[in-house]
Computed example of a mutant assay.
Amino acid sequence: MTDHAVTRQRIGSEGEPLVVIDGFAANPDSLRADAIAGSYDPAGHHYPGIRAALPDRYLRDQLPVIARALGREFGSYRRIHVVDARFSIVTTAPDALDVRQRLPHVDAYGRDRIALVHYLSASDRGGTAFFRHRATGFETIDEARAPIFFDALRREVEAAPPAGYIVADTALFERTALIDACFNRALLYRSNVLHSGAIAADAVLSPDPALGRLTVTAFFAIE
């Protein structure tokens, strides 16, 4: 059985939970082999890369690990519903990003939605960063905050378009946390926390799963 090392922390002034699990999968090399054999398509939904289906065993094996790691950090719940889960590889060059891909984002507004990132690159290909929007002070975006946030952001971006992937502090955003990529490490956090892949300017952005920034990205609803 895999020896999971679970670290729990609270990030930013809003104190959102972030769970880091090292040794997440029992056989990560087998998952890399599945990824290398996979069939990839453009991701859509503003993800700057490509995605492929997971083997059936992935969720069967990892959902119990996720449930234990969630604990009660994210509130009480009775079940976990899988919204989406796939292999993902960042492939878009910094100068080819659209403006939405150059900014921190959220993947859902509800506090019942949980995101997973599972790093499977053999070498460091960039971790995950979390941010505070300076003008509003927001670190999470819900339905009430969204109009305020996006109105302010639209005006800021029109005045000074951002360049490349966001990794550290900028004039518009302050980084509140950075988790480095580590082979077979996974992160769990609420989908409404402002975040971005920490993709360095000189990062390897190969579409080859054996060379590029290979992760599993997944989204869950707890109820």
Rank of each mutant, 00 (worst) to 15 (best):
D3E: 13
H4T: 10
V6M: 06
V6G: 05
Q9A: 13
G12M: 04
E14S: 12
E16A: 14
L18Y: 02
G23E: 02
F24G: 00
L31R: 00
R32I: 09
A33M: 13
D34L: 12
A37S: 15
D41E: 15
A43I: 13
Y47K: 13
A52I: 01
A53Q: 13
R57C: 11
Y58N: 10
D61Q: 12
Q62N: 11
V65H: 05
I66R: 00
F74I: 11
H81C: 11
D84M: 04
A85R: 01
A85V: 03
R86G: 02
R86Q: 14
S88H: 10
T91A: 04
T91H: 08
V99D: 02
L103T: 09
P104Y: 02
G110Q: 08
R111Q: 07
R113I: 13
A115Y: 04
S121L: 01
D124S: 08
A129K: 04
F130M: 03
F130S: 00
R132T: 11
E143F: 01
A144F: 02
R145N: 09
A146L: 04
V157G: 00
A160G: 01
P162V: 11
P162K: 12
Y165M: 10
Y165W: 09
V167D: 11
V167R: 12
A168Q: 07
L172D: 07
L172P: 00
F173T: 01
E174N: 06
E174G: 00
N184V: 05
L188K: 02
R190T: 13
N192T: 06
V193Q: 02
V193K: 00
S196Y: 04
S196E: 03
I199K: 00
A200R: 14
V204M: 11
S206W: 14
S206M: 09
P207Q: 09
P209D: 14
V216W: 05
V216D: 10
A218H: 13
E223L: 04
